[in-house]
Design a protein around this nucleic acid. Structure first.
Lengths: 250, 250
DNA sequence: CGAACTTTTGAGTCGAGTCAATCTTGGTGG
DNA sequence: CCACCAAGATTGACTCGACTCAAAAGTTCG
């Protein structure tokens, strides 16, 4: 009985920004308590997504952005012909759907990589609230700006880096994101398949697999299925930077 | 005398959003006249930049975004070691500096590719004004969202496309951007060097040059130095799409 | 417990990079 | 105004990293 009560309370707590453990990383991060109430009131809670389920599909009408509460998702864009491009992974506290604001529809599908819960934030209401709350508006601008910045980093990765550097960078970025969220930066589980990683990094699955094996034989990481242990972070960082390409400086 | 008067008036006219020929493409696009006055009043005009001059440098303190009035610019990011990455070209009506909002500094240098004029928009004042003008706020969100979307397209290009497809896509995108601005989509001048194009597309200069020569011999385009004539747009589009890579679909 | 999917490993090929040499062009100073 | 020089662009020869194809080994889940 007390157990059930306890769990029940925990779920209710989780369900509000004021008590959410992610609030220091998420959109309402800059808001005072009273304003957070207002923000919280426009949020819609959603039933958890199961692995493989879409949060929305490419072409769906844009209505909301979403904050990831737990789990993880991938963004996949399908071109006219059947080829897919995986353009992003989303972890807890990150905002999904910002690239849909511009046109009426979402430019890619968002698929859960594991059991995942999100907070839905209807954009028209968010926009209105951002009129009254400069901190919220600023945070929204910052979130988009940050994503722009990360995109530029990804472009550099794709146009300059070797397969080894890409994998190393990918593992470091993941590690860093886990660390910021309070998890171990040295030991984590990949929620995405090798195929997803390859698609995201512009590499063939075989290449991803081969390079992970090599990293393992170099004692830089230990990989077992989707379990990753970073054994030598400095070496991994060195791998992500070494032998920088020249390629005609402007 | 009337000539001078006329030119004088022309310059003054150009210098305000209300009479700027780009206003239908630029940030104040959605504003009514009275609101445009308010917007116009926060803009700072700048002396034209000469070719090669920076609008600002990587690491400079973020204060403003800029709208391109005439000419063109490139964004260049320098990594710890000396290697540069060209992440964007900016044409008239486009907004420069949005990726600086997030942190205190600009993540890359912006360099004029030719004689270029810009409108400076101090961000703190823009933010305040966006509180009062929902249309302005919406347009700002849309601009950032659009840039996110374009970044995703660029990532696909860099991770999936062959050198031929990249060059063809690049030419098509430029052509489209000129068309939207009222210039010929079939005949235009590249303001950037081959090295810039290569750096942007993740290709060696030699590859850019070779492929342009080949396109020329295939009678798809006629290239003479920086002058480009698109002879067969359908063929160019076909080149940008053909033989789509598979590379592990998620 | 087995079918389907995912991952790993091996062998062979090719697109695009590097290096090198030549040709053009645009800007500068005489 | 033109000649010159440095920077930019082109073309060729060679190399190599990552892809494709193929097959085996491991994992997941009904």
């Amino acid at each position: 009985m007390p157990d059930i009560m306890g769990r029940h309370r925990a779920i209710l707590n989780e369900a509000h920004c004021q008590t959410c453990s992610l609030s220091s990383l998420c959109l309402p991060l800059a808001l005072e308590l009273e304003h957070m109430d207002q923000f919280d009131s426009i949020i819609r809670r959603r039933a958890p997504l199961k692995k493989g389920e879409p949060l929305f599909r490419q072409g769906d009408v844009f209505t909301s952005v979403f904050a990831v509460r737990s789990g993880s998702l991938k963004q996949v864009t399908t071109e006219g012909n059947g080829s897919d491009q995986l353009t992003n992974f989303y972890l807890p506290s990150e905002l999904v759907g910002l690239d849909g604001i511009n046109e009426a529809t979402y430019p890619g599908s968002i698929i859960a990589l594991e059991t995942t819960t999100v907070c839905e934030i209807p954009f028209d209401r968010l926009d209105l609230l951002s009129e009254q709350l400069p901190e919220l508006r600023g945070q929204l601008y910052r979130s988009m700006s940050k994503e722009l910045r990360e995109d530029r980093r990804m472009m550099r990765l794709l146009s300059r880096k070797t397969a080894d550097q890409r994998l190393a960078s990918f593992l470091i970025t993941l590690s860093e994101r886990f660390r910021r969220r309070g998890y171990s930066p040295y030991s984590f589980r990949l929620s995405m398949s090798r195929a997803d990683i390859g698609n995201y990094l512009g590499l063939a699955v075989e290449t991803v697999s081969r390079i992970l094996s090599r990293f393992q034989s170099q004692k830089v990481v230990a990989v077992s299925g989707r379990e990753v242990n970073v054994l030598d972070m400095p070496a991994l960082i060195a791998l992500s930077e070494e032998e920088e390409q020249e390629l005609n400086s402007p």
